[in-house]
Design a binder for these strands. Sequence first.
DNA 1: TTGTATGCGTTATCAT
DNA 2: ATGATAACGCATACAA
Lengths: 340, 340
Amino acid sequence: MESVTLKDIAEHLGVDSSTVSRALSPDKRNLVNPATRRRVLEAAEVLGYRGNQQASALRRGRTGIIGVIVADLGNPFIGPVLRGISSGLGGKGLLPIMTETQDSSDELARICNKLLAQRVDAIICTAGRQADRAVLKRLAKEVPTVLAVRRFPNSGITTVSHDDAAGGRLAAEHLLSLGHTKLAMLMGPQDIWSFEGRTQGFSEAVAAADAECVLVDEAIHLPTLDAGRELMRRLLDQTASDHPTGIFAENDSIAIGAMHLAREHGLRCPDDLSIVGYNDVPLTAHLTPALTTIKLPAYEIGRLAAELVATLIEDPGRSASTVTLSPELVVRESTRSVRI
Amino acid sequence: MESVTLKDIAEHLGVDSSTVSRALSPDKRNLVNPATRRRVLEAAEVLGYRGNQQASALRRGRTGIIGVIVADLGNPFIGPVLRGISSGLGGKGLLPIMTETQDSSDELARICNKLLAQRVDAIICTAGRQADRAVLKRLAKEVPTVLAVRRFPNSGITTVSHDDAAGGRLAAEHLLSLGHTKLAMLMGPQDIWSFEGRTQGFSEAVAAADAECVLVDEAIHLPTLDAGRELMRRLLDQTASDHPTGIFAENDSIAIGAMHLAREHGLRCPDDLSIVGYNDVPLTAHLTPALTTIKLPAYEIGRLAAELVATLIEDPGRSASTVTLSPELVVRESTRSVRI
DNA sequence: TTGTATGCGTTATCAT
DNA sequence: ATGATAACGCATACAA
């Protein structure tokens, strides 16, 4: 169980531990005699030397660990983001510590402290609501931070996300182009900027087309299947017999929940109702009807966030940048031309 | 940017850093004068002291970090497991480093070394194929290790998983009870013990009932949607006009892929074909037809793994234990009585 | 109750 | 090309 140290190798070889350290260091190996280097490498191999990142970190002031904060690991949408982060970080020799806030502000603050105490080299945060703005701004002052997926306008924090407003517009234009004139929007928590952006984009495009639109904003806390059911129920209640035919759900979970509730009320999708979701979560393509949705480039966002974080570590003074990717409309079976 | 140390607080207060250390230590605070303790706490607050886990870890020989190894972060099935791990670890004040092997043995070995160099206190591993057996056994000798979800029979490693054979039996019995006499099994990679176990259980139950069963084992490397399509294609080719009517897919992805291919060939589920999946991945309940599947207690496994790991850290000498949870049949719409 | 001294394993500086 | 030495920040054994 006792682990092998530099000193062990040094004694074994009759050299000094600093020589061993140099021989093993990727960028200082040239400062050492090739012959000794060989002996060191061999001894390290034989003795099973593994290094000690903790000690190295203490000495160098760098841990090689990145704190990653997500809202909910259960949300299927986060999988691709994490894959992107993981593969991006892996290339740089960095390791992610993963934490989950459950979308709670208190938890977010606690986690930030923990990560800071761990001396993470940087943080990638995909969680955070409007109430967390101050916490995150303070965080970004202490450690290189990049916001991924979710953004905070004018926060001065490096961000890689995508254009939610454009996504909202895409959804509206798609429904309008199919001839739907009576629209509705099932809204996610508006204190998360992503949803607010989608709302704005959708509303703009609807207004520009002089179409009619029912906003269903029940201030749900989390955008889940159940929330989707509830929003749809409200919509049906509100509109009695004269339902909108084109519906934009601000994420896929809401869309699926809404679709189910509608079906229970005898409304078929896409026959009676066209529904557009958001995110393009895995498996949405395999629902029946397959969900028309706005694809958010989740993997790419994760990947870019990881790369940005690496450059930020190299150059902490670097001024904040913002990368904004584009959403994409994915037309499947849940939307259809309005019947004449 | 310069961070506050114990020494800073000590100088600020005119006491020794060891006193500050004691005052701040949860289990040694009683060794210090309540009055000084108060002053220390206040000063720590004012100066923004955060501690340094790296230094603490080096000194105490404990990092409070757990290495978590998964095969594929993109697999929707892993979400609930991670949630379980995360919440279980959180309660113990431990933090997870997440890594991904992409189901590659080389990558697994590399990752083990990285985690060991990080001096993680323990490892939770949900990845690993038969070829990795030796690597994992060696790993478990160096650091407390718990295998989660996937198991290695007689490895002597603490494991929390569930009974795959029972799950396979459940699937077979369900199909048989519906009157299906011609069965087929779409097999996942058999060098992963989970799949081998499901195969065994299913085969046993089929044999016990004297039923007919076509095994489709194309030695796929990963159990994906595409693999499911391929397996189903093979099955249809093999069986020409006289298709089995009861199909067990060894995971949900295979089931979904198979269902799609069958549909393209004019076979409807559940009218012509009953299909049982495995895992109960999120959203399977919302497919059409909703997938009948075997529920694997993913969250509970993750949670238990985290708790086991914590006890293992406290008591490293503890002999390996094995926790085996039970699968559960979830009947939905993709299976139906055979038509007479 | 508090202070002193030491070492965890590494790396950087300085000298040889 | 290599060795000696110090320091990173903390926790502990021991002394006072």
